[in-house]
Nucleic acid binder design. Structure first.
Lengths: 347, 347
DNA sequence: TGACGGAATTGGAACGTTCCAATTATTAAG
DNA sequence: CTTAATAATTGGAACGTTCCAATTCCGTCA
């Protein structure tokens, strides 16, 4: 029962042609006669041939693999990003090699090395916290196209695709100010990331623009998770002057903030306004539906993949830094929808 | 700047040894002298050599890749499963090839074919809805070790790792009955899956055991998502005789049910008892914390990977069907924790 | 000194594909 | 019927590694 591997040579023999012809058929070449193509395909089915990509890769010294490395797959933002990438990558005839680093630089180094050994033709990386340009240097020198996504790294010399975090935060805070809020917190996230930095900067700028001084005690970091959101809002509610609204680092934190609010018998959307960031799928269906800055992770994954494929096709391309625009999606959790409904009725 | 690929031969030349010796070093063979090993390693670093796995795979006709195909990566249950697999697989020196089928049989066929072409040494599959034994036949005939996870497929002739859905459902429903509930609903999930079938069977058996007749109108299917949970509970509340408690198909549905309850000004845990299934990470931190049947997706991923690695090592092993036990984790959403606290105080 | 044995090293063949240049078959034109 | 042009097919080399059998090295013992 231990079957020998069937190779192009076996197919060739069965179909009465040469291995070169079989190879041509495999590649869908137009050079081969329709009748022989049929014969060959029949033999392939007959013998249960499976293509050996290792051999092909070796010969052509290139593969149809693209690698994607994410820092936290259990965060649904990144899971969605990955499925976005997968969708376009596979429809371009590539296959995706996905690795999760759990924010560990060392693990990231390993998986990138492993991907290079497998001869990926390109890499999409959402770098782990603390990744520096020097960590990526050997990779970019090798000339493999790389697209950094979500988190950019200064001086890395590769393309990047990030969201306009600053503008998103500004829009969210302006909206809260319009709704009459004066004490607005920024909750969650690790302070040492570029994403955090730009979102907080947007938050500060919007506050300043409205003449509301910098309220440093209202910026409260935490793990960027649901649990982190709970602790952040608890901390915020310990202040003598409590906030009445919060912009959260991401949607997971925002959900945690809602949880923490309810634990204190406060209803998010009614008693306290909360705005998230990212617009993960659950944001729409949660109760109250989450007002959030839509980043469209899946769409970002798709665009990153397209950018990468373009670079692969073009050979060596100039690195470009794309910042994709975001928009505020107003739902219930900031209390705005209700007010607007009233306004619509009264006008 | 276009660099030539550096190969073992270049290393050999630089280190003044033969390519065979370099190969030995690469494989960590004990045959090679410590001094030469050092020389070779120095040359490897010096020239920036990167191992070509395609060539190695071709020669040895085996790879260090294991494939994992899941039916829905955006569901955090499966994302966690994947990270569990990744953890053990990578510490065994393998690398993970992850693909998402989005429940599409056709896509599943493609990714499995692609993985075979890449010469994976084993496959962990959480099959798409409607997958039949015949879909997997060519794969299992090829002798590649396969472990089915989460969803078993009758007659496939491969190992499987599932959770004890029946026992979990029985435990959950018994708990609700003990708490005094008499009208208990089963909410969410697609009726044509084996997982649904066994959970509902457990639900029915527990009801029967307590002399509560079959309450067929209380079994309400829906998409196994948060949005699905909202619609299911809405439907349940339209009945003339409303339920007072529900066992949900999974945690996502349970969260949706909580949302739907709140939309009707009912507080989950106080006014209505809800129990989930799976115990995803958010279950613990949600408010109210979700009572749920713990399936430990990450642990399941780890066990599936271990099972697969064992089979790969053993060559051809007898297929085994493992059903991993589950346990009811009582938190707040079923109202039990509060009662118990009262009891503890009074006793 | 020579023979022996274990440790370390080595050249060449092989893995299954693709590419290239060359060959053969077919058709069209004169 | 010959020649040219085009279409279809082909054998062999090459890709970078590992494996095998063979060889060299070196110290030890008689």
């Amino acid at each position: 029962m231990a079957k020998e591997r069937v190779t192009v040579i076996d197919i060739a023999r069965a179909a009465g042609v040469s291995k070169s012809t079989v190879s041509l058929v495999l590649q869908g070449s137009s050079l081969v006669n329709e009748a022989t193509r049929a014969k060959v395909n029949a033999a392939i089915r007959e013998l249960g041939y499976v293509y050996n990509r290792s051999a092909a890769n070796l010969r052509q010294s290139k593969s149809k693999i693209i690698g994607i490395v994410v820092n936290d797959l259990t965060n649904s933002f990144f899971a969605e990003l990955a499925v976005g990438v997968d969708a376009v990558v596979q429809s371009a005839g590539f296959v995706q090699f996905l690795a999760n680093t759990s924010e560990k630089i060392e693990r990231q180094r390993e998986v990138i090395a492993s991907m290079r050994e497998h001869g990926v033709s390109g890499l999409i990386i959402s770098p782990a916290r603390g990744t520096e340009a020097s960590d990526l240097a050997p990779l970019v020198e090798s000339g493999i196209p790389v697209v950094l996504v979500v988190r950019d790294i200064a001086g890395a010399g590769v393309s990047s695709l990030t969201s306009d975090n600053h503008a998103g935060a500004v829009a969210a805070v302006r909206h809260l100010i319009e709704r009459g809020h004066r004490r607005i917190a920024f909750l969650g996230g690790f302070a040492d990331t570029a994403v955090f930095e730009s979102r907080v900067r947007g938050y500060r700028d919007a506050l300043l623009e409205a003449g509301l001084g910098p309220q440093s005690e209202l910026v409260i970091g935490s793990a960027p998770s649901r649990a982190g959101g709970v602790t952040a809002i608890e901390q915020a509610m310990m202040l003598k002057e409590r906030p009445t609204a919060a912009l959260c680092f991401n949607d997971a934190v925002a959900f945690g903030v809602c949880d923490g609010l309810r634990a204190r018998r406060l209803e998010p959307g009614a008693d306290f306004a909360v705005i998230g960031f990212d617009d993960v799928i659950e944001a729409k269906t949660a109760v109250p539906a989450l007002t959030t800055v839509s980043v469209d992770p899946q769409g970002m994954g798709e665009r990153a993949a397209e950018l990468l494929l373009k670079q692969i096709k073009a050979g060596r391309a100039e690195p470009e830094a794309i910042v994709s625009s975001v928009r505020l999606v107003v739902r219930q959790s900031c209390g705005a929808a209700a007010e607007r409904r009233m306004k619509e009725v009264s006008s």
